[in-house]
């Protein structure tokens, strides 16, 4: 048995208590505060798909903001949403189901009670939500499809942001800028020779840096997706699904 546990631990994608698995875990006051923090973190990354979904349902920007904030507030307080079963493996599907539930049942109450007394989970003012929503193409995409597509976008945006930060804090911002194209395409031999010249590195070192960039990105991306599924076996399936949403 120890064999299996040891090998699991060495597995490249260690699945130690991801945010979503914390959310799913039940019991204990300590667990509750952990759970709250985990949900807050998830909310910071994935608020926009929800906002876009609510907007596409025809809400005004103000109402959509209120609803999104209120939705996360309730989710974190664990009130009112307890009848949605979170055991369905994916944070994304859980959120959408909960949101639909919330919009159907709680909408009136949210309208009357919460005006003026907004609870802020997400620091909204800095986000420019409407500006982002305004660039959405006006076509006949259903709210669900828009939600899933924007979800996939949010995952990628978050991962690239973190990757860029990682390089910038190490003072390698220029290297990231020069090599980020390698994330789309495995670099061909000699493709980054001019980069090498510009950065004063050997072509070989640049090739290794590109390889490392891909590796780091891949790990970040899989880690991020791991945060939103209940078990590591679902990562590939989730990636495949997100690909179909793009």
């Amino acid at each position: 048995m120890t064999t299996s546990a040891a090998s699991r631990e060495n597995f490249r994608e260690p699945f130690v208590a991801t945010r979503w698995s914390i959310v799913l875990a039940a019991g204990g006051p300590e667990a509750d505060s952990k759970r709250q923090r985990a949900l807050e973190e998830l909310a910071q990354v994935y608020w926009f798909p929800l906002y876009a979904y609510v907007r596409r349902h025809g809400q005004t920007p103000e109402a959509a903001e209120d609803l999104t904030q209120e939705f996360f507030a309730r989710l974190i307080e664990k009130h009112g949403l307890s009848d949605v079963d979170p055991s369905k493996g994916r944070f994304r599907s859980f959120l959408l189901a909960s949101l639909n539930h919330f919009l159907a049942n709680e909408y009136d109450r949210a309208q009357t009670q919460k005006r003026g007394g907004r609870r802020k989970i997400i620091a909204w003012d800095a986000l420019d939500a409407e500006a982002r929503y305004a660039i959405e193409p006006v076509d006949d995409v259903t709210p669900e499809r828009l939600f899933e597509q924007r979800w996939a976008w949010a995952v990628l945006d978050e991962v690239l942001l973190r990757l860029r930060e990682l390089y910038t804090t190490q003072g390698q911002g220029a290297l990231f800028e020069a090599l980020k194209g390698a994330l789309m395409q495995r670099p061909a031999a000699g493709q980054y020779d001019d980069v090498a010249q510009k950065l004063g590195m050997t072509p070989n070192a640049v090739a290794v840096a590109a390889h490392r960039l891909r590796g780091r990105y891949r790990k970040l991306l899989r880690d991020e997706i791991a945060q939103t599924v209940a078990e590591p076996g679902l990562i590939d399936a989730e990636v495949t699904y997100l690909l179909s949403c793009l």
């Binding site: 996939a152 976008w153 990628l156 690239l160 994330l183 789309m184 395409q185 891909r214 990105y217 891949r218 991306l221 899989r222 997706i225 990562i235 990636v239 997100l242 690909l243 793009l246």
Partner: peptide, 8 residues
Amino acid sequence: RVCLLKLA
């Protein structure tokens, strides 16, 4: 985005 996701 497609290629970025595929890398995973």
